[in-house]
Protein backbone atom coordinates (compact mmCIF):
# COMPACT_ATOMS: atom_id res chain seq x y z
CA UNK A 1 0.00 0.00 0.00
CA UNK A 2 1.53 3.20 -1.15
CA UNK A 3 1.57 6.62 0.42
CA UNK A 4 -1.01 7.71 -2.09
CA UNK A 5 -3.55 8.29 0.63
CA UNK A 6 -2.91 10.65 3.52
CA UNK A 7 -3.03 9.10 6.96
CA UNK A 8 -4.82 12.10 8.37
CA UNK A 9 -6.74 14.58 6.30
CA UNK A 10 -8.47 17.55 7.87
CA UNK A 11 -10.55 19.86 5.75
CA UNK A 12 -11.77 23.36 6.59
CA UNK A 13 -11.39 22.91 10.32
CA UNK A 14 -12.94 25.76 12.27
CA UNK A 15 -12.80 26.24 16.01
CA UNK A 16 -14.00 29.21 18.00
CA UNK A 17 -13.41 30.15 21.59
CA UNK A 18 -16.06 32.70 22.42
CA UNK A 19 -15.71 35.27 19.67
CA UNK A 20 -12.18 34.33 18.76
CA UNK A 21 -11.58 32.18 15.75
CA UNK A 22 -8.75 29.98 16.97
CA UNK A 23 -8.83 28.02 13.72
CA UNK A 24 -10.32 29.39 10.53
CA UNK A 25 -11.00 26.84 7.80
CA UNK A 26 -7.64 25.14 8.19
CA UNK A 27 -6.74 22.25 5.89
CA UNK A 28 -4.13 19.84 7.14
CA UNK A 29 -2.95 16.49 5.84
CA UNK A 30 -0.13 14.13 6.65
CA UNK A 31 1.03 10.90 5.02
CA UNK A 32 2.30 7.78 6.74
CA UNK A 33 6.03 8.15 7.31
CA UNK A 34 5.94 11.89 6.79
CA UNK A 35 7.38 14.40 9.24
CA UNK A 36 5.53 17.68 9.28
CA UNK A 37 6.65 20.66 11.33
CA UNK A 38 3.86 22.83 12.64
CA UNK A 39 5.13 26.35 13.17
CA UNK A 40 3.74 29.72 14.05
CA UNK A 41 3.90 32.36 16.72
CA UNK A 42 2.31 31.92 20.10
CA UNK A 43 -1.45 31.98 19.71
CA UNK A 44 -1.30 31.14 16.01
CA UNK A 45 -3.42 28.05 16.59
CA UNK A 46 -0.83 25.26 16.76
CA UNK A 47 -1.99 23.93 20.09
CA UNK A 48 -5.62 24.24 19.12
CA UNK A 49 -5.02 22.24 15.96
CA UNK A 50 -3.29 19.53 18.01
CA UNK A 51 -6.18 19.52 20.43
CA UNK A 52 -8.61 19.06 17.56
CA UNK A 53 -6.55 16.14 16.24
CA UNK A 54 -6.39 14.51 19.66
CA UNK A 55 -10.08 15.03 20.37
CA UNK A 56 -9.59 17.35 23.32
CA UNK A 57 -11.37 20.17 21.47
CA UNK A 58 -13.77 18.82 18.85
CA UNK A 59 -14.07 21.32 15.98
CA UNK A 60 -17.19 23.31 15.09
CA UNK A 61 -16.74 23.01 11.39
CA UNK A 62 -14.87 20.91 8.91
CA UNK A 63 -14.25 17.22 8.49
CA UNK A 64 -11.57 14.76 9.50
CA UNK A 65 -10.60 11.61 7.66
CA UNK A 66 -8.26 9.05 9.10
CA UNK A 67 -6.91 6.38 6.74
CA UNK A 68 -9.38 7.68 4.21
CA UNK A 69 -12.37 7.13 6.45
CA UNK A 70 -14.47 9.98 7.87
CA UNK A 71 -14.05 10.03 11.64
CA UNK A 72 -15.21 12.11 14.55
CA UNK A 73 -12.69 12.49 17.32
CA UNK A 74 -14.43 13.69 20.41
CA UNK A 75 -12.14 12.57 23.19
CA UNK A 76 -8.57 11.66 23.90
CA UNK A 77 -9.67 8.05 24.21
CA UNK A 78 -11.09 8.07 20.70
CA UNK A 79 -7.93 9.54 19.24
CA UNK A 80 -5.88 6.97 21.11
CA UNK A 81 -7.99 4.24 19.58
CA UNK A 82 -7.18 5.63 16.15
CA UNK A 83 -3.48 5.36 16.98
CA UNK A 84 -2.67 8.98 17.75
CA UNK A 85 -0.15 9.57 20.53
CA UNK A 86 1.00 12.91 21.91
CA UNK A 87 4.20 13.70 23.79
CA UNK A 88 3.89 16.92 25.69
CA UNK A 89 6.70 19.15 26.79
CA UNK A 90 6.48 17.93 30.34
CA UNK A 91 6.61 14.28 29.55
CA UNK A 92 3.86 12.25 31.09
CA UNK A 93 6.17 9.80 32.76
CA UNK A 94 6.40 8.67 36.36
CA UNK A 95 9.85 9.69 37.60
CA UNK A 96 10.08 7.15 40.39
CA UNK A 97 9.42 4.25 38.06
CA UNK A 98 12.01 2.59 35.86
CA UNK A 99 12.02 2.44 32.07
CA UNK A 100 9.86 -0.59 31.40
CA UNK A 101 7.34 0.32 34.08
CA UNK A 102 6.83 3.63 32.29
CA UNK A 103 6.65 2.11 28.82
CA UNK A 104 3.90 -0.24 29.95
CA UNK A 105 2.07 2.04 32.39
CA UNK A 106 -1.65 1.45 32.00
CA UNK A 107 -1.07 -1.38 29.52
CA UNK A 108 0.68 -3.90 31.74
CA UNK A 109 1.31 -7.44 30.60
CA UNK A 110 0.18 -10.11 33.01
CA UNK A 111 0.59 -13.78 33.64
CA UNK A 112 -1.82 -16.17 35.30
CA UNK A 113 -0.90 -18.33 38.24
CA UNK A 114 -3.01 -21.31 39.38
CA UNK A 115 -5.54 -20.24 36.81
CA UNK A 116 -6.99 -17.31 38.71
CA UNK A 117 -4.21 -15.19 40.21
CA UNK A 118 -3.25 -12.57 37.66
CA UNK A 119 0.11 -10.98 38.35
CA UNK A 120 2.26 -8.59 36.37
CA UNK A 121 4.80 -10.21 34.09
CA UNK A 122 7.63 -7.84 34.89
CA UNK A 123 10.28 -9.87 33.11
CA UNK A 124 8.42 -9.94 29.81
CA UNK A 125 7.59 -6.22 30.02
CA UNK A 126 11.25 -5.42 30.68
CA UNK A 127 12.48 -7.49 27.73
CA UNK A 128 9.85 -6.09 25.40
CA UNK A 129 10.57 -2.50 26.46
CA UNK A 130 14.31 -3.05 26.00
CA UNK A 131 13.66 -4.54 22.58
CA UNK A 132 11.56 -1.58 21.43
CA UNK A 133 14.10 0.89 22.76
CA UNK A 134 17.03 -0.89 21.16
CA UNK A 135 15.61 -1.99 17.84
CA UNK A 136 13.30 0.91 17.06
CA UNK A 137 14.94 3.79 18.86
CA UNK A 138 18.56 2.70 18.97
CA UNK A 139 18.89 3.21 22.72
CA UNK A 140 20.39 0.56 24.96
CA UNK A 141 18.51 0.34 28.23
CA UNK A 142 19.64 -3.12 29.24
CA UNK A 143 20.59 -3.35 32.87
CA UNK A 144 19.03 0.02 33.64
CA UNK A 145 16.95 -0.49 36.73
CA UNK A 146 17.06 2.94 38.22
CA UNK A 147 14.07 5.27 38.34
CA UNK A 148 13.94 7.43 35.25
CA UNK A 149 14.17 10.74 37.08
CA UNK A 150 17.87 9.93 37.35
CA UNK A 151 18.12 9.69 33.56
CA UNK A 152 18.76 12.45 31.01
CA UNK A 153 16.04 14.32 29.16
CA UNK A 154 16.84 12.50 25.94
CA UNK A 155 16.59 9.10 27.58
CA UNK A 156 13.28 10.04 29.13
CA UNK A 157 12.06 11.14 25.74
CA UNK A 158 13.06 7.79 24.26
CA UNK A 159 11.01 6.07 26.95
CA UNK A 160 8.01 8.25 26.17
CA UNK A 161 8.43 7.43 22.47
CA UNK A 162 8.70 3.73 23.27
CA UNK A 163 5.34 4.10 25.00
CA UNK A 164 3.87 5.52 21.80
CA UNK A 165 5.45 2.77 19.70
CA UNK A 166 4.16 0.06 21.98
CA UNK A 167 0.71 1.60 21.66
CA UNK A 168 1.20 1.04 17.91
CA UNK A 169 0.78 4.70 17.19
CA UNK A 170 0.38 5.58 13.52
CA UNK A 171 0.64 9.30 14.24
CA UNK A 172 2.94 10.74 16.87
CA UNK A 173 2.69 14.39 17.85
CA UNK A 174 5.75 15.90 19.51
CA UNK A 175 5.17 19.16 21.35
CA UNK A 176 8.50 20.99 21.61
CA UNK A 177 10.48 17.75 21.79
CA UNK A 178 13.89 19.43 21.87
CA UNK A 179 13.14 22.36 24.11
CA UNK A 180 15.03 21.12 27.13
CA UNK A 181 17.67 18.91 25.57
CA UNK A 182 21.41 19.25 25.19
CA UNK A 183 23.09 19.39 21.78
CA UNK A 184 23.92 15.70 21.65
CA UNK A 185 20.45 14.73 22.75
CA UNK A 186 18.85 16.92 20.11
CA UNK A 187 20.79 14.96 17.53
CA UNK A 188 19.62 11.72 19.04
CA UNK A 189 16.01 12.89 19.03
CA UNK A 190 16.34 13.84 15.38
CA UNK A 191 17.71 10.36 14.70
CA UNK A 192 14.79 8.83 16.55
CA UNK A 193 12.33 10.83 14.46
CA UNK A 194 14.06 9.55 11.31
CA UNK A 195 13.58 6.02 12.57
CA UNK A 196 9.90 6.64 13.20
CA UNK A 197 9.63 7.86 9.62
CA UNK A 198 11.36 4.73 8.36
CA UNK A 199 8.78 2.59 10.12
CA UNK A 200 6.08 4.65 8.38
CA UNK A 201 4.84 6.44 11.46
CA UNK A 202 3.59 9.94 10.71
CA UNK A 203 5.13 12.62 12.94
CA UNK A 204 3.95 16.15 13.68
CA UNK A 205 6.59 18.28 15.36
CA UNK A 206 5.82 21.55 17.05
CA UNK A 207 8.93 23.62 17.61
CA UNK A 208 10.14 27.18 17.73
CA UNK A 209 13.61 26.25 16.65
CA UNK A 210 13.81 26.54 12.86
CA UNK A 211 17.22 24.91 12.79
CA UNK A 212 15.82 21.76 14.34
CA UNK A 213 12.78 21.91 12.11
CA UNK A 214 14.81 22.11 8.95
CA UNK A 215 16.95 19.23 10.21
CA UNK A 216 14.04 16.91 10.72
CA UNK A 217 10.90 17.86 8.82
CA UNK A 218 9.81 16.96 5.30
CA UNK A 219 7.29 19.76 5.13
CA UNK A 220 6.44 22.93 6.99
CA UNK A 221 2.95 24.05 7.85
CA UNK A 222 2.77 27.64 9.02
CA UNK A 223 -0.17 29.00 10.98
CA UNK A 224 -0.88 32.66 11.62
CA UNK A 225 -3.85 33.90 13.62
CA UNK A 226 -5.78 30.70 13.13
CA UNK A 227 -5.21 30.48 9.41
CA UNK A 228 -2.90 28.27 7.43
CA UNK A 229 -0.57 30.62 5.56
CA UNK A 230 2.14 28.19 4.61
CA UNK A 231 2.32 24.59 3.49
CA UNK A 232 5.59 23.95 1.74
CA UNK A 233 8.03 21.05 1.33
CA UNK A 234 11.22 21.79 3.21
CA UNK A 235 13.37 22.13 0.09
CA UNK A 236 11.08 24.78 -1.35
CA UNK A 237 11.29 27.21 1.53
CA UNK A 238 14.03 29.05 3.37
CA UNK A 239 14.10 29.80 7.10
CA UNK A 240 13.78 33.49 6.25
CA UNK A 241 10.62 32.82 4.29
CA UNK A 242 9.23 30.74 7.11
CA UNK A 243 9.75 33.58 9.55
CA UNK A 244 8.21 36.03 7.11
CA UNK A 245 5.15 33.79 6.90
CA UNK A 246 4.92 33.47 10.67
CA UNK A 247 4.98 37.20 11.34
CA UNK A 248 2.94 38.20 8.29
CA UNK A 249 5.58 39.89 6.14
CA UNK A 250 4.81 37.27 3.55
CA UNK A 251 1.12 36.78 2.87
CA UNK A 252 0.88 33.15 1.83
CA UNK A 253 2.87 30.31 0.33
CA UNK A 254 1.16 27.03 -0.36
CA UNK A 255 3.11 24.56 -2.46
CA UNK A 256 1.51 21.18 -2.52
CA UNK A 257 3.08 18.72 -4.87
CA UNK A 258 2.96 15.94 -2.30
CA UNK A 259 -0.63 16.40 -1.35
CA UNK A 260 -2.87 14.19 -3.34
CA UNK A 261 -6.52 14.62 -4.20
CA UNK A 262 -9.06 12.56 -2.32
CA UNK A 263 -7.83 8.98 -2.30
CA UNK A 264 -9.69 6.01 -3.71
CA UNK A 265 -11.78 4.31 -1.06
CA UNK A 266 -10.05 1.60 0.86
CA UNK A 267 -10.97 -0.21 3.99
CA UNK A 268 -8.12 -0.07 6.48
CA UNK A 269 -8.45 -2.40 9.37
CA UNK A 270 -7.40 -1.59 12.89
CA UNK A 271 -4.75 -3.84 14.32
CA UNK A 272 -3.21 -4.14 10.92
CA UNK A 273 -0.88 -1.27 11.40
CA UNK A 274 2.17 -3.28 12.32
CA UNK A 275 2.24 -5.17 9.07
CA UNK A 276 1.57 -1.98 7.22
CA UNK A 277 4.58 -0.31 8.74
CA UNK A 278 7.00 -2.94 7.52
Amino acid sequence: MASASPLLEMTAITKRFGGVRALDEVDFAIDPGEVVALVGENGAGKSTLIKVITGIHPPEGGSIRYRGKPVEVRSRRESQQLGIEVLYQELSLVGVMNAYQNVFLGKELTKRYLGFIELLDNERMRLEAERILLEQLGMDFRGRWEPIFLMSGGQQQAIALARAIYAEASLVILDEPMASLGVEEVERTIAIIQRLRESRVAVIVISHNLEHIFAVADRLVVLRRGRKVGDVPKDRITPEEAIALMVGRLEEKIVTPGTVPAPPREEPRRGDRRSESR
Binding site: R77, S92, L93, V94, G95, V96, M97, Q101, L105, G106
Partner: peptide, 14 residues
Protein backbone atom coordinates in the same frame (compact mmCIF):
# COMPACT_ATOMS: atom_id res chain seq x y z
CA UNK B 1 3.24 3.90 42.83
CA UNK B 2 2.22 5.74 39.66
CA UNK B 3 -0.41 7.80 41.48
CA UNK B 4 1.97 8.77 44.27
CA UNK B 5 4.84 9.30 41.84
CA UNK B 6 3.09 11.50 39.29
CA UNK B 7 -0.63 11.78 39.54
CA UNK B 8 -0.99 13.64 36.25
CA UNK B 9 0.89 10.96 34.34
CA UNK B 10 -1.25 8.29 36.01
CA UNK B 11 -4.41 10.03 34.85
CA UNK B 12 -3.05 10.36 31.33
CA UNK B 13 -2.15 6.67 31.27
CA UNK B 14 -5.83 5.96 31.87
Amino acid sequence: IAIGGNRKAAVEAG
